[in-house]
Write a protein that binds this DNA or RNA. Structure first.
Lengths: 249, 249
DNA sequence: GGGCGTCATTAACATTTGTTGGGCGACAAG
DNA sequence: CTTGTCGCCCAACAAATGTTAATGACGCCC
């Protein structure tokens, strides 16, 4: 492994360490996890519903999403994942997956055997606790999304999503909070917030017209963070970030 | 502790054991957890948003619910909890709670210190794994709820909720699947499925008229399980129950 | 450079869901 | 027994969102 090609699990170890301080040996054990790195094109399945995944997948770059298909063929996106996210702690301990995971863009992913991860979690309680915290944060985001689709109107939902994406991107050091690429079609945004693509379009245009955002294709510029956050009833509390960036609401 | 008053944590130990087999000492350690039992009247707060809970709370009897309040004063219920559920694994490891938990009926709850629970989880990996599984199942239910409010219409949402409640009640040995007491007002049901109480009423009446259910006050009788499950796009898969009752869809 | 497919945009119209407000019955408090 | 409150039920109307369909822009492949 050359210096131009750092160890692929470094970012993961740092992320866990930011939740719970890791001792030197614990950190080394994380880096020693067996894994294989794969590059996957956009639109490919990482996990399918009813699969019994034997590996857990860690995002190294790119974006992926979880989703479910409902009776009438509608699709609901349940989460968006980006670099550093553990994509399948959610399913690996179940007998079979209850939802799909698919790449949104081209992705580099590291596959780690479920059993190795499990052993590690119970050999180093610091690592176990950090991983547990990660799953709890996933849960917290799920809860916020329930509230978002259940009790907010179209404008609030979309504003909230734009804010969340911005904050999460910045937290991992990709893009500025107020100017980023959103790698999704309006139909996919609709599947996130429980709206049709037509209504997503109406609402995005309205946000632009009101001067809160400025979009061109996939790029989003947030012109007035305070107002957008207010419009989306957004607050970083539920993200439980290690240190709260004080600049944001 | 007399024989008429069994150890309050027995059910909890059994529940964990149904997920991951527990050795004799592991099981004993669960029962040895320090705890204090309290009876709480209906409508009381167990956890408030922004609290830093030092104790985790285990439901012994009764029903409680998690919820968030959004900008316009709307409320979204995020989960319903019943006997045997661990109410606050969700929050105890965070610096502060991101939502509220409140009793729905009178409840008996056992408060267990967070630190004891944490120590136990890392002393006995079987217990740790079982607890982890519990939180993953909570997450799975959250995901299903996102899909429910995001992509199903009123009839589907409510039918789905009625089915879920029925199956969960039966799983813990309370009430039959097709005839139970639902301890919620129609407004609270609305807060679960993201609808107004007026529309919940319309929809419940329609289910009755179509012969799928029969209700009087808080009692629900499911006349045609198959059809109700189909109407609600309901399937027990996401509940990840230890043994699937084959009688249900 | 031309052709093709995907995606954003818009409009007209349909449907679902929300809002308001009133009546009624069950239950609890006095 | 009376009264008040709460929750269920209902109807008329309002608003939000979905549906369908057409158009144009853009990027990609040959």
């Amino acid at each position: 492994m050359s210096s131009r090609d750092p160890h692929p699990l470094t970012a993961f170890a740092q992320r866990l360490g930011s939740r719970v301080p890791l001792s030197e040996p614990a950190s080394a054990a994380v880096l020693a996890l067996p894994h294989s790195v794969r590059v996957m094109p956009a639109g490919e399945h990482i996990v399918r519903e009813r699969d019994r995944p034997s590996h857990c997948c860690l995002m190294l770059s790119g974006f992926s999403y979880r989703h479910k298909i409902v009776a009438n063929g509608g699709r609901q996106i349940l989460a968006i994942h980006m670099a550093g996210d553990m994509v399948d702690l959610q399913n690996t301990f179940f007998a079979s997956s209850d939802h799909n995971v698919q790449t949104l863009t081209q992705c580099e992913v590291a596959f780690i055997p479920r059993t190795s991860l499990e052993e590690l979690a119970f050999s180093f309680s610091s690592v176990g606790k950090a991983m547990w915290l990660e799953t709890l944060i996933d849960g917290s985001i799920f809860r916020e999304w329930i509230a978002n689709v259940g009790r907010r109107n179209a404008k609030q939902r979309i504003a909230h999503f734009l804010c969340e994406f911005a904050v999460r991107l910045e937290a991992i050091g990709l893009g500025e909070t107020c100017n980023y690429e959103l790698p999704m079609t309006q139909e996919q945004i609709g599947d996130v917030v429980g709206l049709t693509s037509v209504h997503v379009n109406r609402t995005l245009m309205a946000l632009d017209r009101e001067g809160l955002t400025e979009r061109t294709r996939r790029s989003v510029i947030i012109l007035d963070w305070q107002q957008l956050a207010r419009a989306g009833d957004f607050n970083t509390h539920y993200l439980h970030m290690p240190e709260q960036p004080s600049a944001l609401a």
